[in-house]
Design a protein around this nucleic acid. Structure first.
Length: 259
DNA sequence: ATGGTGGCGGTGCCA
């Protein structure tokens, strides 16, 4: 069972790249972020033609998240609990009917939070606190849970090309890392770093200033696994190939394989 | 030091 996260930076621009990656990688589930489209604008038929179902929360121009799955999807939440006034399309959670039993997944698009400090950074920290509270409740299910997405969090200095120059960035600041660690410390396993403790790889490269060519990247797309999922973890990789193709997203897919 | 790119929507905002 293969579960991936992929920030597509516009599903309309990237549906071709997504479908190619579905062919190449054959994931069971892909958690998408930054659809940048309303629900009716999402090219669902193209994705369904590849043998996948789609559930999504859309929004005009910004945000937008989806769950793409070969297996039946039962949506549980269309927003992150904890603030009904938050109208950003940044969270969708569902049960996936896997042959071996249900797996709970969420596609998360955390706020970027720049500039920091500021209102946007405060919103990011509030969002992280809401995610902490909800992630804690999910552990009570005692089933495999995969919380995947664009966390907009650089967990440690090893996860960014220039830790000194970016130290004050909203993705790197100590409060950000602390709020993220607090979630992990509830009992979640970050799949990539757990399997590759010292490997330097990134999941995002800015479009500007030749960041991709210089490998000036950031590792900000993560898969957090509940104990029941972590016990089944076999592999986790960052697939750089889509980022290197023409008209690529600025992010590339991260996937994990569970027994 | 600055500006560098891309997406949306039709102007600046967001990343």
């Amino acid at each position: 069972m293969k579960i991936a996260t992929f920030n597509v930076n516009s599903i309309r621009r990237r549906v071709g790249a997504l479908c190619q990656w579905l062919d190449d990688a054959a994931p069971d589930v892909v958690l998408l972020q930054e659809l940048k489209a309303q629900a009716e604008q999402v090219p669902i038929l193209e994705i369904e033609a590849k043998g996948y179902r789609v559930e999504l929360v859309g929004q005009k121009a910004y945000n937008g998240v989806a769950i793409v799955s070969r297996h039946p999807i039962t949506v549980i939440h269309r927003a992150l609990p904890g603030d009904t006034a938050d109208e950003h399309a940044r969270y969708i959670e569902a049960d996936i009917a896997m042959p071996g039993g249900p797996v709970r997944v969420a596609s998360i698009y955390l706020p970027n939070g720049n500039p920091a400090p500021g209102d946007k950074y405060d919103y990011k920290l509030r969002f992280l606190n809401r995610l902490y509270a909800h992630a804690r409740e999910l552990l009570e299910l005692e089933i495999p849970v995969v919380l995947g997405g664009d966390y907009n969090v650089v967990p440690a200095d090893i996860d960014v090309h220039d830790p000194v120059g970016t130290a004050d960035d909203a993705l790197c600041r100590p409060e950000t890392r602390q709020a993220y660690r607090r979630i992990v410390n509830l009992g979640y396993t970050e799949a990539y770093r757990t399997l590759h403790p010292n490997r330097i790889e990134y999941s995002f490269w800015d479009y500007q200033a030749g960041a991709w060519q210089k490998n000036d990247g950031w590792r900000i797309d993560h898969l957090l696994l509940s104990p029941q999922a972590a016990d089944r973890l076999l592999a986790c990789e960052i697939d750089r190939d889509p980022r290197g193709r023409p008209e690529a997203s600025d992010h590339t897919p991260v996937w994990c394989q569970l027994r």
